[in-house]
Structure formats: structure tokens, C-alpha cells
Amino acid sequence: MLLFLGKRLLQLIPTLFIVSVIIFGLQQLLPGDPALAMAGEERDPEVLEQIRRQYRLDQALHIQYLYWVGGVLTGNLGESMRLKEPVLTLIAQKFPVTLQLALMAIVISLTIGVTAGVISAVRRDTAIDYAVNVIALWGISTPNFWLGIMLIFLFSVHLGWLPASGYVGPFEDFWLSLQTTILPAFVLGNAFAAVLMRHTRSAMLQAMSSDYVRTARAKGLAERVVVIKHAMRNALTPIVTLGALELGTLLSGAVLTEQVFSIPGFGKLIVDSVFNRDYAVVQGVTLITATTYILLNLLADIAYVLINPRLRS
């Protein structure tokens, strides 16, 4: 296990190097001029020149890259051109928000998706199975943007139960934090719950028709034990992968949902930065999310080994 972990961690170094080159390189392909984008309506040639000099935009690409990587290695991701704040400070402000939202969304989707998938598989071809399938199909096909706005109108404007948008941290005011994040977390979790339900259902159906389940039944075990302890444990392996990948995606920011609910998370930060050509922020956020994604994949692999003893050898 330790050797496996050590090997995987060593592999991270070249991966992250390639990721950094790709991030930097792709960004250069963005059309437009950061100085012009930053100047907005105030496009004076002298001022533009000064911005280019100040942010080293007038230097060769490889020099700009070296400055950036040099900074990253010493823990300095640069400064936002638009906001004059260090990129690390911005990331430190946004990451907990996105993390909270992502975790809530994952909990919601796992609770709904796995439960519905198992029920649907156990009650295969019954009215419940059909109903769950229809709901899942609705969940997959509902655009987040639309669902978000509809929920705001229902719960905030008409019923007045929840705030329409905004964000409050859980350490500031726990209940208010829950109120501001429950709708966006539900919107995010909704689509994934549907995907999870479909996967759980098919994995469960496969597991339920396998030999070891027949053996377990033949031993006279209660159906509940057969389903939960034997079939479900095996069916969970692909779900863990899916969950880890989805968490990675959610951590890179849910652009539309954050936009609709005005949640100051990664998604909003990166979209604003791309539109304003705030290179340092785009690079910093992308690097952090790519690293998180890679680490989550590693965790998923470790979880596999823990769930499936056969992989330990």
C-alpha cells in the first residue's frame, strides 16, 4: 500500500509540470489583449503601455512562464490585475465557499441518487421503478439555470422562506449559511443524483443477479442483509469513482449555478477573470483546481483498494 502511494505521489510531479505548461499555453490562445480588457473605457495608449510593462505582458512568453512558475514554487501565485489582491487571498476566500457547496451537493445527490437507485433495482419493473426513472430523466434534462431561477421565484419571491441569493459562511451564522446554500446545492446535486440513480440501479441489478448474492440468499440471510451488505458493497465501487470525479468538477466551480444564486465561489471568480483577461487569477485558479482534481483521483484509487480487498495484493 505504501509503495503504491509513493509511486502515485511521484507521478504527480511530471503531471503537474505538464498541467502548468498546458494552463499557461492555452491561456495565450485566448484572443484579446489583457491591457485593453483591463483599461475598459479608459484606453489611453500611454496607460496601456504602462500596464503591459507593470505586468510583464511585453516580455517573451517563456520569460513570463518562468516568472509565473518561479512564483508558484515559492508559494506566490501573483496578483489580480483587476482587483489588486494576491491570487492566493482570492483563492483562500473562494475555496471554502465552493467546497461547502460541492460537499452539500454531493451529500444531497448521494442520498437521493443511491437510495433511489437501490430501491429501483430491488423493486425492478414495478410502478416505483418507473416513477423513479421518470424523475431521474427529469433531473438529468433540467437545465441548472432554469431550475435555479424557478426555485428562487418559488421559495424567495412567492413563499418568502429563503433568501433569494447571496452567501453567508457557516462560521458566521450556521442557519443562515444553510438557508443561502440549500437551493444552489440542491440545483447542483439534482442533475448528479439522477446520474447516480441510473448507475446505482444498473450496478445493483448486476450484483443482485450474481452468484455470491444467490449464495447469500441460499444461506438463508435476510433480504435486507443481502441487499445492503453483499450486493450494495460491490455495486458501490463505480459510484465512488463517479462521486470523486463529480466532486472534482464541482470544486472547479459551478459557473451557472453560482451566477444565478450570486454565490462568490470559484466559478464566478474564473468566469470574471477570463472575461477581464486577468491572467494571474485564471492561471492560479486553474492550477489549484487541476491539482485538486488529480488528488481526488488518487483518493478514489485509494478508496477502491479499501473497498475491494482483491486490489490490495
Binding site: I152, V157, S262
Partner: peptide, 18 residues
């Protein structure tokens, strides 16, 4: 002062008293 880019959501906030 809260930036809310979506105009529909901005209006919903005003209507709901947020």
C-alpha cells in the same frame, strides 16, 4: 452593495425584500 449579475435574480431579490 452586492453584485448580482443576473438581472432577473437582481429583480427577484428586490421583490422578495432581500
Amino acid at each position: 452593495l452586492r453584485p448580482i449579475i443576473e438581472s432577473t435574480v437582481r429583480l427577484a431579490n428586490l421583490k422578495s425584500g432581500s
